[in-house]
Nucleic acid binder design. Structure first.
Length: 414
RNA sequence: GUGGGCGUAGCUCAGCUGGUAGAGCUCCUGGUUGUGGUCCAGGCGGUCGGGGGUUCGAGUCCCCUCGCUCACCCCA
């Protein structure tokens, strides 16, 4: 047992019974996004490490401790992609998409990798659906991004959903706010919990989430980010909210919403589900107007989001899916005649399967019942065929295999 | 990285204060049922996660280790 190899920690096999729900989710995502003009893009599973260092940001958890980084045989440092936005922006620049009509709207679906301890809804390899709109500052782009993800999650049946929205402002106002908040925390450091006090430099916003009584008292009087937005940022944000109202998207403005990536400015959002455990975010995203310039492209605004497929499924977003019907089940032993029969049946458009387990007659019918096959056929000693309709119960004798296919095609009754 | 819970057949689990491994489900076979989903009988399947220790004897006790899982940080 000790030598039995298991899937690496934090990875999982997607088994056949789960495969249908994922396919249905993917199909729905394609419909929702492509009907809004988003086009599919595929980027490599790994990229130069530098892309993520510069794009995602050196100070983020992702870059500091969660990347799967390795050197290839040529000595290049590569990293399994931990998120999708940086790579899509790289592709935008690399292929000169700034010369296309703007904004360029792209979506993607695939596996991503983060070296973290697994827990409910968190894996080292996980799948994301994502969408990015590059080349427009219009608040409508922000609102539409939020609308599309909300629509997808609702359509697909994810339960217990809450949309949280906020604005971080641009870098200047955010830096100003951060300093003001840190200043406030330091002034009242004696009342704070130790945890919060230790995080004043690292992540002061986190203090808003504390349950500690003294900390809560201090936070009640803390400065709020929205008061630090300049006129343009405030205007942008209120337009986003107005558009969400117009589209009937229910949301909650959460001034303390923090995002783990450095590149976000202005609008940020997360969508959570009450169906999940501690990791309750189904998806999230925001505006990243400086990212493309950061990785060497022309200054270009962008807005995007990503949602976790495993989490959507956990939240109940598993659309029903029917197995393809089996029209004909052919008993063994399998010889050239049986083999040709199923091949011909499939060519004629039927769902046909062979008994590949050398089953007894009873076993054949049990298996046919499991598959819910409509017809069962087996060859007699003299080369003629018996064909039974499991639904009606009738059974006929056919002179040869060709006649079996014809009879099944003529179905339903024999 | 840290902490809690858990690791016995493919799956779900039982195994009392240590005595040398069980049940149900699944799968296969035979019988029964109108040649199929019922019922009956049988069969396949485990070096009890791994290593070491205590003991006449360990799935049961002790130590180490690996794995799974939930949670912290952060988020998909």
């Amino acid at each position: 047992m000790s030598e039995r190899i298991q899937a690496p920690r934090g990875t999982q096999d997607v088994l056949p019974e789960q495969t249908a729900a994922r396919a249905a989710l993917e199909a729905r995502a394609r419909e929702v996004l492509e009907s809004a003009g988003y086009q599919r893009i595929e980027t490599p599973i790994f990229e130069h490490t530098e892309l993520f260092q510069r794009g995602v940001g050196e100070s983020t958890d992702i870059v500091q401790k969660e990347m799967y980084t390795f050197d290839d045989a040529g000595g290049r440092s590569l990293t399994l992609r931990p998120e999708g936005t940086a790579a899509v922006c790289r592709a935008y620049v690399e292929h000169g998409m700034h010369k296309l009509a703007q904004p360029v709207k792209l979506w993607y679906l695939g596996p991503f990798f983060r070296y973290e301890r697994a827990q409910a809804g968190r894996y080292r390899q996980f799948w994301q659906i994502g969408a990015e709109a590059l080349g427009s500052e219009d608040p409508a782009v922000d609102a539409e991004a939020i609308l599309l993800l909300t629509t997808l999650l609702t359509d697909v049946g994810a339960r217990g959903i809450t949309v949280k929205v906020s604005s971080l402002g641009r870098l200047e106002s955010r830096a100003e706010y951060r300093a003001a908040l840190q200043d406030h925390l330091r002034r009242h450091a004696d009342k704070l919990s130790e945890e919060v006090r230790n995080r004043i430099d690292l992540n002061p916003l986190r203090a808003f989430d504390s349950d500690h009584p003294g900390t809560r008292e201090v936070m009640a009087g803390a400065p709020l980010l929205r008061d630090f937005l300049d006129a343009e940022d405030a205007q942008h944000f209120s337009e986003v909210l107005a558009l969400l109202d117009a589209a009937g998207v229910a949301y909650k403005v959460e001034p303390t919403l923090v995002r783990g990536l450095d590149y976000y400015v202005r609008t940020v959002f997360e969508i959570h589900s009450s169906e999940l455990g501690a990791q309750s975010a189904l998806g999230g995203g925001g505006r990243y107007d400086r990212l493309i310039a950061e990785i060497g492209g022309p200054p270009t605004p962008g807005m995007g989001w990503a949602a976790g497929i495993e989490r959507i499924l956990l939240a109940g977003g598993a659309p029903p899916h029917a197995a393809p019907p089996v029209d004909l089940y052919v008993a063994g032993p399998v010889g050239p005649t049986q083999f040709r029969l199923v091949a011909d049946a499939r060519r004629a458009g039927l769902g046909a399967q062979l008994d590949l387990a050398g089953r007894s007659m009873k076993g054949v019918f049990k298996q046919a019942a499991r598959l819910d096959a409509r017809y069962v056929a087996w060859m007699n000693e003299d080369g003629s065929w018996e064909l039974k309709d499991r639904q009606g119960g009738e059974q006929i004798t056919a002179p040869d295999a060709d006649a079996v296919v014809r009879d099944v095609l003529r179905g339903p009754g024999l």
